[in-house]
């Protein structure tokens, strides 16, 4: 009986661990996430479930987490509408992505796009690779080779 309970508990906690945790955030939390850190390389990706090239490139961020481990922090920010959170979750689940992931619930776009990146007009996919004050801004779909090159240039 104890064993059974243990097994059940184990599977329950495993499934909770694997379940998609997408945190809904506002502008304030987003800007907090984007704060530069001199000792850490960050990869921020802005995507949405309705954006085909975004969904297509998601696996390269999983690959980043796998290859670089603690050297690089990957932060995914979905721009799906908050009521479509489940759509975003499903895609992440399908792509087996289970690291820090957010959904920005701010649809007055003009009030925060410039605060994220003045060069950005708001089109997605958009990726930022950042270490301290060094920032690489990429406003198109990336290949793994391109992303890896950008990350390596900041890891040096």
């Amino acid at each position: 009986m104890k064993k059974l309970l243990f097994c059940g508990g184990f599977f329950l906690s495993m499934s909770l661990l694997l379940a998609q945790n997408v945190q809904i955030i506002k502008k304030k939390e987003l800007l907090e996430l984007l704060k530069p850190n001199e000792n850490q390389v960050y990869v921020y990706n802005f995507w949405a479930s309705w954006c085909a090239p975004c969904v297509k490139e998601l696996p390269i961020f999983k690959q980043t987490a796998e290859k670089f481990g603690n050297q690089v922090k990957v932060v995914l920010i979905s721009l799906d509408f908050a009521e479509e959170l489940e759509k975003a979750k499903k895609i992440l689940q399908k792509k087996e992505i289970n690291f820090s992931s957010y959904l920005l619930d701010e649809t007055k776009y003009n009030t925060w796009i410039d605060d994220v990146e003045p060069r950005w007009q708001g089109a997605i996919p958009m990726t930022i690779v950042q270490k301290g004050k060094k920032r690489i801004f990429i406003n198109e779909e990336l290949t793994w080779e391109q992303l890896e090159k950008h990350i390596s240039s900041l890891l040096k």
Partner: peptide, 11 residues
């Protein structure tokens, strides 16, 4: 000038 989310132009 007002910014908004959209799709990238596919160059």
């Amino acid at each position: 000038q007002v910014k908004a989310i959209g799709c990238t132009i596919k160059w």
